[in-house]
């Protein structure tokens, strides 16, 4: 039985500590602390009168960012919608005339979103990002359903440099085969070189 006894860090009380003196001491100390704080300026700030700058990595309103060259980053790969635990993301992928895959429509239902950030983590193109903007309260629930035009922002967000199509190896109007990062020129299978 003794082995099963839950161990605690509590030390057994010494006789002096359990006396009335110690109780009084604790009481005085407690009141002293309270009194000290009564005189101090409060640390809380009144919202919305005061709006604190949140850390960059705070997880609130979701946006769709753009590549450094200003093009939409989202390739509608469906990873964010797959990972979303509340299924608040939906989209339809399609092909641009130049071969890029993009979201023809993209919808996030913020009425359902729990701001867990899994979508951002799953996004292979740094397109979907959570921003510190948490003030997304509406009376009409339907206005919380954001379409692509509501989600798309200018700029790269937290990832200022990544451009998926620089790496992807698929042909676009900007880069052909062999013109992406870390690519050799396309193989010419009919080359005379051995």
């Amino acid at each position: 039985m003794s082995e099963n006894k839950i161990k605690t860090d509590e030390k057994p009380l010494k006789p002096a500590e359990s006396s009335g003196w110690s109780a009084l001491k604790a009481l005085v100390e407690g009141f002293a602390t309270t009194a000290k704080h009564l005189a101090r300026k409060p640390v809380t700030e009144s919202y919305p009168e005061f709006k604190r700058q949140l850390p960059e990595r705070s997880r609130a309103r979701i946006v769709l960012t753009r590549d450094p060259d200003g093009r939409e980053r989202c390739v509608a790969c469906y990873l964010c919608s797959a990972v979303c635990p509340v299924s608040c993301i939906s989209m339809q992928s399609a092909e641009q005339p130049d071969g890029r895959r993009y979201a023809r429509w993209f919808r996030i239902n913020f009425g359902r979103c729990i701001y867990c950030g899994l979508c951002e983590e799953a996004c292979p193109t740094s397109a979907i990002q959570l921003t510190p903007d948490f003030e997304n309260i509406q009376r009409d629930i339907l206005t919380l359903v954001f379409e692509k035009k509501d989600l798309l922002v200018d700029g790269c967000g937290k990832d200022p440099s990544y451009n998926f199509y620089e790496h992807a190896g698929v042909t676009t109007d900007e880069r052909g085969k062999g013109e992406h990062a870390n690519e050799a020129p396309p193989v010419n299978v009919k080359s005379n070189l051995p």
């Binding site: 870390n182 050799a184 396309p186």
Partner: peptide, 19 residues
């Protein structure tokens, strides 16, 4: 470096991405 290939148009049914 990564090897790359040029794709072929194989008709309306099958998309080719040789990379």
């Amino acid at each position: 470096l990564k090897r790359t290939h040029i794709n072929q148009d194989l008709g309306p049914l099958v998309q080719h991405e040789m990379n």
